[in-house]
Write a protein that binds this DNA or RNA. Structure first.
Length: 588
RNA sequence: GCGUUCGUAGCUCAGCUGGAUAGAGCGACGGACUUCGAAUCCGUAGGUCGGGGGUUCGACUCCCUCCGGACGCACCA
């Protein structure tokens, strides 16, 4: 569809340039030709507004559109224009595409299967993407799920556009917050292990972190002791390290189980405990080259006035490093490990300042890849009841959320009496729960704060994951029937020109523009674009399915063609859901 | 106080990089199952696009200003 549209755009631009030249105006003004979508398909498939040329041509836009239409019709009769017909509609020049050829192209997606929607727009580029980055003192919560789905989905979209992608996870496994859960365990743990309490290992650790609040009441010096423990840890005290290792294995092990459950994976794990000292040497180099300076108090700083900010300390006066130092070193080391062209950080928007400064410093240090750093900044996830707060215990635990959604989905399957039809009810319920959460989180514009409504996410009605999964299941059901010999489709042949009704054309249009959506999502690091497209096609299919007989169509050719269209829709649904980390279901 | 960002229907969100009558979903109200899965579909009501200026042939979109919310402004991560 794009190629046809581009061809028309070029044809219109060339015709406009000719008109401008004839009137003695500058032909390069024709670069302002823009292809748009008319509000109603009855007005045309592609529209070109003529306003920008009115002044230069000394004509009203409607007159320009009419004159241009005549010109292009003449070219078409001479075989010089792309397929389709043109029509002046007020100030717009509209094009009606040759629907049969667009439909034929859309049906071609069936043979491409899982590769339909791939592009080479990012071919040859290496993209590293960092996401999730959990702390090892507590399990994943709803906010992580948004981070994870944005990261994993973006990675899949980038790959679909031809990029080579390296997914990395930076685990925050050191620091005073980790020491707090250790201290709490030392006080209350009594040597117990997760199995003793029948708990998932990361929850076991998280519970001790929460109990640090009790410890503060029992022991007024708890905060101090946590700091002391951190010092012991940094000194490599064997006992401290042993406990730290044990608890971290529990935490990371549990978190990994949640990743397995949600379909998130990483190519490489980095641990802060191993890299928190990196970056010092880079700062020293920058100091030597004059990018940084030594302040009167002995600390090393960078001047941020060129980007309208103050100074930033990079090394304390005692020579110890800070967060920025570490991230600086890590970025450089990562590039040595795997020379990426772009580096994407999926991190909450509260760290915008941090990345602004980090990117600026890397650029000042002269790294050529510093121009292609991107902070995929996302907003908070809140609940209908209000904001999640750790202290108030209103944080939504990821595992518990998935469990409760799975339970609700299971109840629905049972209520509909579909246990036998779905085969494995619990597994199906789990996949519906995952579809609900991932779709809901992925469909929102990343940068904005959002409200997560669990009940709404699971609704089988409306703009939800399960609704889309349902359309996939319906099409699968049709195909099963066809394979069993039902209907007349097998006796007919596929004829794209039969796809002419409004609902059929809408589906053709959406199938054929799917690759553009994937490409745009990749260019903007925005899975929501794929989500919107997948929902649109599911919704359009639902209408089509309701209005038109498919398998039960009397005319074999029409049945075969409509079934082929359904298969094309299925290809888009499957591929799109895959990009969004939403399981596809044959039946539900 | 300074900076960033957001404000679109009762609620949750789109709005294709400045174009045709601002769109969906939920909720409300009213319809559609002897028919491929009604976990669906159709219709109705509901908006001064936070307010006010400006740029433009044309502004939800760009600029300024005010109001309101969020986040940041550490030698914490």
């Amino acid at each position: 569809m794009r190629s046809v549209r581009e061809a028309w755009k070029a044809a219109v631009a060339s015709a406009v340039a000719d008109m401008l030249a004839e009137k003695g105006a500058d032909p390069s003004l024709s670069e302002a030709v823009a292809a748009e979508a008319p509000p109603d398909a009855a007005m045309g498939d592609v529209g070109f507004p003529m306003f920008p040329f009115a002044k230069a041509l000394r004509m009203g836009p409607p007159q320009i559109a009419a004159a241009l239409a005549d010109r292009l019709v003449a070219e078409a009769s001479a075989g010089a224009a792309p397929a389709g017909t043109v029509k002046a509609v007020g100030p717009y020049l509209n094009v009606f595409l040759d629907r049969a050829s667009v439909a034929a192209q859309a049906l071609g997606s069936r043979s491409l299967g899982s590769s339909y929607g791939r592009s080479s727009s990012l071919a040859g580029s290496k993209v590293m993407i960092e996401f999730s980055s959990p702390n090892t003192n507590k399990p994943l919560h709803l906010g992580h799920l948004r981070n994870d789905v944005l990261g994993e989905s973006s990675a899949r979209i980038l790959k679909a556009n031809g990029a080579e992608v390296m997914k990395i996870n930076l685990v925050n496994d050191r620091g005073v917050h980790i020491c707090k859960s250790m201290l709490s365990y030392m006080a209350y743990g009594g040597g117990r292990v997760p199995e003793d309490e029948g708990k998932k290992t990361d929850h076991f650790v998280g519970d001790y972190y929460v109990r640090f609040n009790d410890l503060k009441k029992d022991d007024p010096k708890a905060e101090e002791k946590a700091q002391e423990l951190l010092v012991k840890w940094e000194a490599g005290d064997p006992e401290t390290i042993a406990l730290w290792k044990k608890m971290n294995e529990w935490a990371v092990g549990g978190i990994r189980r949640t990743y397995d459950r949600t379909g998130v994976s990483f190519d490489k794990y980095y641990y802060e405990s191993q890299i928190y000292l990196t970056g010092k040497d880079e700062v020293q180099k920058g100091l030597a080259s004059g990018v940084f300076f030594k302040a009167d108090d002995g600390s090393v700083r960078v001047d941020l006035s060129p980007i309208g900010l103050e100074e930033k300390v990079l090394l304390r006066k005692d020579g110890t490093s800070i967060y920025m130092t570490q991230d600086l070193g890590l970025a450089i080391h990562r590039h040595q490990d795997w020379p990426f062209d772009r580096l994407v950080y999926v991190v909450a928007n509260e760290q915008q300042y941090h990345f602004k400064v980090l990117f600026y410093i890397l650029k000042r240090l002269g790294y050529d890849w510093a121009d292609n750093l991107f902070h995929l900044s996302y907003g908070l996830v809140n609940l209908p009841e209000g904001r999640m707060k750790t202290r108030e215990g209103t944080v939504v635990d990821a595992d518990a959320l998935l469990d409760s959604l799975r339970e609700l989905a299971l109840e629905e399957i049972q209520a509909k009496g579909r246990e036998d039809a779905v085969g494995d009810p619990l597994d199906t319920a789990e996949k519906i729960a995952l579809g609900a959460v991932h779709y809901y989180l992925a469909q929102a514009t990343p940068s904005k704060d959002m409200i997560f409504n669990p009940k709404e996410s699971l609704s089988f009605n409306g703009n939800t994951g399960p609704y889309i999964q349902y359309m996939g299941a319906r099409i699968s059901s049709l195909l099963r029937k066809r394979d069993r010999g039902e209907g007349s489709a097998s006796k007919g042949s596929v004829r794209p020109e039969l796809l002419s009704s409004p609902s059929e054309w809408e589906l053709v249009r959406l199938v054929s523009s799917y690759p553009e959506a994937v490409e745009q999502a990749g260019a903007e690091y925005n899975p929501a674009i794929v989500a919107a497209h997948v929902y649109a096609i599911a919704s359009a299919f639902s209408k089509f399915y309701h209005d038109e007989p498919i398998l039960s169509c009397e005319d074999p050719d029409q049945a075969a063609t409509r079934l082929a269209l359904s298969e094309a829709v299925l290809v888009v649904l499957k591929n799109g859901l895959e990009l969004l980390c939403i399981p596809f279901l044959e039946a539900m």
